[in-house]
Design a protein around this nucleic acid. Structure first.
Lengths: 352, 352
DNA sequence: CTGAAAGCGCTTACAG
DNA sequence: CTGAAAGCGCTTACAG
């Protein structure tokens, strides 16, 4: 017995009109309690479910949100950035809590995702996630706005961006990371990550770094910055580049944990010790950060909260309520990779 | 200019009937090339998209698949098992490749997911993922079958299970892991993970372990087995339990990487060295496995391939084609955590 | 509180 | 190859 029943079958069974069934099922107050009960019984007996397609068509909305995770085409498709996966988890839960379904799609930046979801009415709104080249897709954001599509994106919150952005305080995070390194006595702090307007989040982190350095009377030096995108591979390569320059440095601030982890591996391959020879701080606090050896000091982005804010704001937009971009706090999480003072090789006694 | 246009607008603009527009858009061969071009032009001009809800309603299918990731209610919601996240990535891509959308939902095992997706016609079929208590949800699988719902699940492939299952060869994997440990000269190999029919995948891994031991004339001993579910926390606790028993052991086969990683931490907290004092092998090959220190030897489940097989089989089911359960190969990946012979503390010289 | 009816935007026989 | 028409299963004014 396949789920073939319609609201007419229910109506028949309950001895009411189909309109009444529909009203009862949508929770209209205009239905007699007794009638409602009869309908409910029929629904259960026939194992009836409202057909979402028909319902959506009639109501002109879909009750679903779309999550688009886009990446640079260069990124190999093997592993998705764990930071976004974590965000994905919290978004999923936030949607469920609000009674929305979630459609997901992993796009290349080059694809025409901007056209697809909202306009074919598969989704009422879109959540955009990704560490792509901002300049390259900003154009598509403009188009989304032009079409009146509801969307929010995770990323840097900057003046005059199209649409709503939710992101953490990258500048603040960069500041905290760098200050911490300074406090550990580091003097020559390198920055690994692309610092340009193509990657506004990285850029903000870089700006925080430069600012703190300037305040300490130490300029940010171009010789100590190497571009890297957010992959371990890229971090490894960037570290090699830096080492090849033969510049002296005693600390690394990596624009993401993946970069930091790649860099740590390159350091280790050179026989350099973390944190004794080089202290290192990452950004994101992906799960792996606490598992690497030594555990990685990093700037935490609270993905659980971020997911909630993302869907909350998107829903506001969909409902026509006013909503603004929001900047979430960034918090430093100190682990062993940056602590020059503590001396805890795991076979020695605890330095405490 | 919101995406308000319908196929009638296109028809009007192109000077044809609405039926013809619909046919052209669905790629019917019954449309004149020239007409098709005119329609195409109109579509682009008005930025028209077929309304999915209307289309789905009429065609009685949805073009979307649902992915349900369920977990034991005990599992804290903070982190989703990375193995499933990885599977999720490959499933997403496989769906995209086949032109299907993917709806996702993270359910507690206790919820009524079995009713929701297929029957309200939000999805044509369901992919079930999760390391939950099999006995507890087997009942729901039966219901899915009874309702004629198309679904495939990731898990142990065993005789007379409801529906289709896709899983890796857990027995074989358990065999390979244990044999490898034996080959390293280990004699007292403990098993961490629940070995019961509630967790068939773990159980199969256990059976492979026991089998190899038996062949080597070493029985699997109950004192060397501790239950654990697939979390790092549980692995840590299991290791503590084992240590408290004061049994001698020189190796651990953990039923999952997360368990192995937790166990490694417990070992390290006791001042025991991996692999010198205790060799260890996990299962899954999550990304973290290669980052822990020492890198974890494990049994690889090829998630990329698995995702493809999962959606491929589900699509067969949906199309009414014959489809069967499939067992995927499990492959041992040897890293440092199990190599007693190699002696590579990273500050010493490379052995070899 | 309830029913008859229109209509959401498509797809697809049916009849040229 | 094309058009007129029915209908997918709901929701919601409209009229009691």
């Amino acid at each position: 017995m396949k789920g073939k029943s319609t609201s007419f079958d229910i109506a028949h069974l309950a001895g009411v009109s189909q309109s009444t069934v529909s009203r009862a099922l949508r929770g209209s107050p205009l239905v007699n309690e007794e009638t409602r009960r009869r309908i409910q019984a029929a629904v259960e007996q026939l194992n009836y479910k409202v057909d979402k397609n028909a319902s959506n068509l009639r109501r002109m909305h879909s009750g679903t949100l779309a999550l688009l995770l886009f990446e640079d085409p260069t990124t190999d498709e093997s592993h998705i950035n764990p930071f976004f996966l974590s965000l994905l988890g919290s978004i999923t839960r936030a949607c469920a809590k609000q009674g929305y379904d979630l459609l997901i799609s992993f796009q290349q930046l080059s694809h025409d995702w901007h056209a697809d979801f909202a306009e074919s009415k598969k989704a009422d709104g879109i959540i955009l996630l990704g560490y792509g080249d901002y300049i390259a897709y900003r154009d598509k954001l403009d188009k989304l706005v032009a079409h009146g599509t509801c969307f929010v994106r995770w990323g840097a919150v900057l003046p005059d961006q199209p649409g709503l952005s939710i992101g953490c305080d990258n500048f603040e995070g960069g500041t905290a990371a760098t200050q911490h390194l300074l406090d550990q006595g580091c003097q020559r702090i390198a920055f690994l990550g692309e610092a340009s307007s193509h990657y506004p989040e990285f850029f903000e982190r870089y700006r925080g770094y430069a600012e703190v350095l300037a305040q300490a009377g130490l300029a940010a030096r171009a010789e100590l910055q190497v571009d890297a995108e957010s992959t371990e591979h890229s971090g490894y390569a960037a570290m090699q580049t830096l080492l090849a320059r033969k510049e002296r440095f005693d600390a690394i601030f990596a624009a993401s944990d993946l970069i930091a982890i790649g860099a740590m591996r390159a350091l280790s391959d050179q026989g350099l010790r973390v944190p004794q020879d080089v202290a290192i701080v990452g950004f994101d606090d992906i799960a792996m950060a606490s598992y690497v050896n030594p555990p990685l000091t990093t700037v935490v982005q609270d993905t659980r909260h971020a997911g909630e804010v993302l869907v909350d704001r998107l829903l506001s937009l969909i409902r026509g309520q006013p909503a603004e971009s929001v900047v979430l706090p960034a918090k430093l999480m100190v682990r062993r990779s940056s602590q020059k003072s503590a001396a805890p090789p795991k076979t020695g006694r605890a330095a405490r």
